[in-house]
Design a binder for these strands. Structure first.
Lengths: 175, 175
DNA sequence: CTGAAGTTTCAGAAGTTACTGAAAGTTTAG
DNA sequence: CTAAACTTTCAGTAACTTCTGAAACTTCAG
């Protein structure tokens, strides 16, 4: 299935490398649990690399072990449905990318700027800080909604603009 | 300014490499236009590398040339405010990551599955397709709103859940 | 037209990341 | 306790990415 190969490429953009992406695709698209050996064979990669990849996917909580009674081998399955997986990826990336930046920004904003140029730079840093905080707040909110409501919200899509107008109209009389 | 170095690291996660990230940070945080030579000097990188980096940032439309009358050199400034830049990055990433995946998925979904396993796999592919389409639709909508309304929506954050409830209540009498 | 001030390109060096496969480790059945 | 079946680790190598700096190019003033 060529999708597996392609998702490998995609994977490399989503924070892990090509092989790890392919392993994930293989696991997600197989409804049956799959063993490490089968993965290594299907993708023609070494057993060692497979093991590393699975470890990484487990650390992202995208994949979990599945014990087949009477079998010595370990099998693997996806850690949830597509929406859950997408959420996990976003959450994990946020943790690795946005959170450290936010805490650096907070440190930088504590310094009192010593000249005009620094004052301007801090203004920008402050804007970036606000933006990242908004992203963080959204991400928390979306997390709380759970996959089903999230799907509804996502499908709402094109009417976000209208929702915003509602809110503006309703605001005066509404907390 | 240590922010510049740090944003370099971040940059590498946002689709371009460390140096390109640092160049961007330098340009964004300087309110004055800055020349290629000044960039190379501040970051202690070669002139050639600087030129490549600037070319890439221009291809992302994050940075634009700025002509100072009477000066031979080219100067560079950010192509908009922080929100605009963030939007551009998202838009560009979408173009590079999601769009090719979507078109591959469409192709794969045209094939009629030949067995049980393929049918299951296609079901999953279909879910992924839906998810990516929703993301695309959102992204277009957000693009249309423009930075100011976008900021409002973002700040709304914690009340997304409530908005959803509004929508449910209002829907019956509202297109 | 000439040369000075600048920019871009590109081959190869340096640095980084990913992969293999053999060795070490773990678990369980007998 | 031993051996078989499996997993993990890790040193070395392969593959890839980034960076440098010299050469080629462009533009403009005189």
């Amino acid at each position: 299935m060529s999708a597996v190969l392609h998702f490998g490429e995609m994977g490399s953009r989503w924070g892990f490398n090509r092989t790890v992406g392919q392993i994930l695709a293989l696991i997600v698209l197989n409804d049956k649990p799959i063993s490490a050996q089968e993965i290594a064979d299907s993708l023609s990669i070494s057993r060692g690399n497979t093991s590393m990849g699975l470890k990484e996917l487990q650390s992202w909580q995208l994949v979990k072990q599945h014990i087949v009674p009477g079998e010595r081998k370990e099998f693997f399955v996806a850690a949830g449905d597509i929406w859950t997986l997408a959420n996990r990826v976003l959450e994990e990336r946020k943790k690795r990318e946005i959170d450290p930046t936010l805490s650096l920004l907070r440190d930088l904003l504590l310094d009192t700027p010593s000249n005009k140029t620094d004052t301007e730079a801090q203004k920008k840093l402050n804007e970036i800080h606000d933006l990242l905080e908004s992203v963080t707040r959204w991400s928390e909110e979306l997390q709380r909604l759970g996959p089903d409501k999230l799907a509804t919200l996502m499908k709402l899509g094109a009417s976000v603009g209208k929702v915003l107008e509602f809110k503006d109209k309703l605001k005066p009389g509404h907390q």
